[in-house]
Nucleic acid binder design. Structure first.
Lengths: 339, 339
DNA sequence: AGGTTTGGCGCAACCGATTGCGCTGGCCCC
DNA sequence: GGGGCCAGCGCAATCGGTTGCGCCAAACCT
């Protein structure tokens, strides 16, 4: 039982393939009665055009790729990516673009474009090498659409969707200073990751600007467990930091869990501040720097669609902002420093 | 600047397309020197086979579809789907199958298969109509691979990956009975959704079996806000239920938030029990019925891959289990009934 | 030395749909 | 009544790879 093709319809109706093709696409070149007949037989026989054949002649697949350069486990454990995905999907869906998804530790960024499997690509800028950037740039010149979420380590002509981390970080520091903190510790992301370095630098500058001392910097791996370990390490150090800043919420969650196990409390024993403002953060009362993840994803997809359609799209500007919650509250009144 | 094709390579080398094709696929029919030459030129010129053309002759796209029949917002707001996706992706990735993703309120389940856009499909059984099932069954007879996560309303010959809800529900009821509860309320999923009805029935039976009274059943929409609303409604009723059961964790989270606003506490004022055991549940101390979401996704994907490869795969059996945490603890000692 | 095998490659059909162009028949017009 | 116009449709090339089969030459056989 083969799938029915244009040819089959044509033979049954005694007309040419081309006629059937045009009729189904409501070409006025074909007479109304013929169009109706074709349409009817197509419906009855359950005809559906073959996507590959169509892609071949159209020179486009109608699909947009989304590549997340980490293991599935890592990606889907972090609600940040869910928010990103949500934003991407919520634009892709009405635009009629299915998403081709890949979560792989060592992704081949360009291949999907090179194979014409996708018309456009959304990738995380943070983990792109210079070479990968160049390959993508070349592909864009050949007509592919690419948007990066997060700035890559090297400069690029690719469309980069990013948000300014400074406002939120600055507000957080101001909040800390105002509530009486003087010494803080930072649990940054992976030491070798440029995006983590940039974020750490932003913290450093803002802390200095507000007269706060950065007591210690440790590096986590951006996972829940990594955050827990970092917290245990900080706790065992028994240092003077009264607030711990985390590279992302997931690590902060891990830290909260670790504190919990040790009968430490936030904010009584130490203030905790995350980054991203993922959904559970509000539930847990985690103070954090809000990042408009949904909007970033949506913007990336919007940009890709605009590139493909050839329409203009003025890039949006996005900023972070600090969201004070329970884990950084009331330090002045409750006092207390961990250690 | 066009993309380089087999033809281009062939012309540059002065050989036939077919020779290039075979050489690149390491066909022994082609001499080693020729293979080497072809290979070299292909690398230099950055040749990549066109996916559509390949799919056309292979009569397969090498892609597997994942269709989630709800809005992107709904899907990605619920960590349950992240876990599912994680499971699916973690099998798809090593198997070399990219995922085509769709989150749409009114998905066309079969189209991707009919258009040969995907070789296999993973869908949520819970929202499939009888007609949709029949269409999918027909497609499976034509060689497509389909796996459903969650049982559909009608019986089907399709592969259904599901887990037994009863053990976890039974354990939860036993736990409630043991800790002194006698009257409970249930916030079930959408009233018209068969899967929600089935789960509600399971609760009913287990509650009766353990001598607990089901005081009231309300229906939520499986969202955070829906759970919050349901909780407010239950609270305002001021009834005698000392424990509230929720159709999923997300609604339970909403309820916790609503309780928080009203200075109600769990478990002191009312015990809260969720369903799914998504990641934040552990962080929030939400008692819940654990569902092996990751495994269900992985099993579905494994099944699809096995169907496509023609290998045998013995279906795994999955069960739920109750995870007692803070929100259902210590009722006997702290007493107290909301209202 | 002549016939046969065989390794190496080209020809052409095919996958299924799209599209430029050309052909046909009916009608209108002068 | 014959030429021209146009609506309606078919032919065939094309997209980029894959593959069965056939062809040629070198090498082998007796």
């Amino acid at each position: 039982m083969r799938k029915v093709t244009l040819q089959d319809l044509a033979e049954q109706l005694g007309v040419a393939r081309s006629t059937v093709s045009r009729a189904l696409r409501d070409d006025l070149q074909i007479s109304a009665p013929t169009r109706a007949k074709v349409r009817r037989l197509a419906d009855e026989s359950g005809y559906h055009p073959n996507a590959a054949a169509r892609a071949l002649t159209h020179r486009s697949s109608g699909v947009i790729g989304l590549v997340l350069p980490r293991s599935a486990r890592f990606v889907f454990a972090n609600p940040y990516f869910s928010d990103l995905l949500d934003g991407v999907a919520s634009v892709a869906e009405p635009a009629g673009f299915p998403l081709l998804l890949s979560a792989s530790r060592r992704p081949d960024y360009a291949r999907w474009l090179q194979e014409a499997r996708v018309d456009g690509l959304i990738a995380l800028g943070s983990s792109l090498s210079n070479h990968e950037l160049e390959v993508l740039e070349r592909l864009v010149k050949q007509g592919s659409a690419v948007a990066l979420i997060g700035a890559p380590a090297h400069s690029t002509s690719l469309r980069v969707v990013t948000c300014d981390e400074h406002p939120g970080i600055d507000q957080a520091c101001e909040h800390l200073a105002r509530t009486g903190h003087t010494r803080v510790a930072l649990v940054a992301g992976p030491a070798r990751a440029p995006y983590a370095q940039a974020r750490a630098r932003a913290w450093r500058e803002a802390l200095a600007h507000h007269g706060l001392t950065l007591d210690k910097v440790v590096h986590g791996d951006d996972t829940f467990e990594g955050g827990a370990e970092a917290a245990r390490a900080l706790r065992d150090r028994g240092d003077q930091a009264s607030a711990w800043l985390f590279g992302n919420d997931l690590m902060a969650f891990g830290a909260l869990r670790a504190l919990d196990e040790a009968e430490f409390r936030a904010p009584e024993d130490v203030a905790i501040i995350g980054f991203d403002d993922v959904m559970p953060a509000a539930l847990l009362g985690l103070s954090t720097v809000h990042q408009p993840s949904h909007e970033l994803g949506a913007e990336a997809m919007t940009s890709v669609v605009a590139q493909l359609r050839g329409t203009v799209h003025t890039d949006g500007r996005y900023v972070t902002h600090f969201v004070p919650r329970r884990t950084s509250a009331a330090f002045l009144t409750s006092g207390g420093v961990g250690g």
